[in-house]
């Protein structure tokens, strides 16, 4: 019987969702800034892959402007699907996805690139262009939006300094360590100063110390007012971050909790606390925080 249940079409279940929603545990979330719509708003987002596998099952969540939130869950729970849905790499079979109050799946397809320019995205495998230097990789994001060359020359070294890679701007990605490559990816995602930054397993390939460095960098970006949504399977790390945590399991949202009290710490305090809680040393991993 449960098997049969799972086989019912996701769209059908989405139609039945109204009743379900009443039963589902939901925590009302105050909008971060009154008057403005939340930066991310997903209502009953359902993704069905070709072949019938349900990637996301009626996910409903809202993320306010300026939040730093985590999405956790085991492999295959739909975390990456969520990211892909938010940047419209896949479209939901049912439900509504709004970014800054706009339903992204109602956009014309040739507007999708403009949506992606407003969202910085960081991937587990970095997705750097292998035949370009660090500088050119970051500059490409600016060239894409038609930034004048003088601006590119100014902004690119600036952001690379922020991520602590000023010494390696002329290196190619394969000459960098994993942590450094991820920093380049973050620099590229953030160089346009998008209002939203999505990170899909940004520390998935990195050791704990480097991971804290990356998290510290993301936190620094968050402190500039950018909303940061980090997807990770590393529950341990997330628990110590003391931020809002959204847990997914088999495509369903099973937990959405906020840990308050740590929202105003400085990036330095943040890194120190993280290192203490993770039980790793003080040396390394803090590039750029001079």
């Amino acid at each position: 019987m449960p098997l049969l249940n799972r086989r019912r079409s996701a769209a059908k279940r989405a139609r039945e969702g109204r009743e379900h929603r009443r039963r589902a545990p939901r925590r009302p979330r105050p909008r971060a800034q009154s008057g403005q719509p939340p930066i991310i708003s997903v209502e009953d987002g359902t993704v069905v892959y070709p072949g019938g596998h349900v990637g996301l099952d009626r996910i409903t969540l809202e993320i306010g402007r300026g939040e730093f939130a985590f999405v956790v869950g085991p492999t295959g729970c739909g975390k990456s699907t969520l990211i892909k849905m938010l940047i419209r790499e896949i479209e939901p079979a049912a439900g509504r996805v709004q970014i800054a109050g706009k339903d992204i799946n109602e956009l014309d397809h040739n507007r999708t690139p403009y949506l992606r320019r407003r969202i910085g995205t960081v991937f587990q495998d970095f997705k750097l262009l292998p035949n370009r230097t660090v500088y050119d990789n970051v500059a490409y994001a600016l060239q894409v939006i038609g930034e004048p060359r003088s601006q590119i020359r100014r902004k690119t070294p600036e952001i690379l300094r922020l991520v602590g890679l000023q010494a390696k701007i002329h290196n190619y990605p394969d000459e960098l360590s994993g942590g450094e490559q991820q920093r380049v990816a973050i620099a590229r995602a953030f160089v346009n100063h998008p209002p939203l930054l999505l990170a899909d397993e940004p520390t998935g390939n990195l050791d704990p110390i480097t991971s804290i460095g990356i998290m510290q960098l993301l936190y620094r970006i968050n402190r500039t007012g950018t909303t940061v949504l980090v997807v990770t399977h590393d529950r341990d790390m997330v628990d110590k971050m003391r931020r809002r945590v959204i847990a997914l399991e088999e495509g369903r949202l099973v937990r959405d909790e906020d840990a308050s009290g740590y929202h105003d710490e400085s990036t330095r305090e943040f890194a120190a606390r993280m290192r203490a809680e993770m039980g790793v040393g003080d040396e390394g991993g803090t590039n750029g925080d001079h």
Binding site: I87, E89, N110, P113, K127, L129, P130, A141, V144
Partner: peptide, 16 residues
């Protein structure tokens, strides 16, 4: 093709 994929994800238009 990977390069093209990255370009799309960064928000490059198809003609770009």
């Amino acid at each position: 093709r990977r390069e093209v994929e990255v370009m799309r994800l960064v928000g490059a238009t198809n003609w770009f």
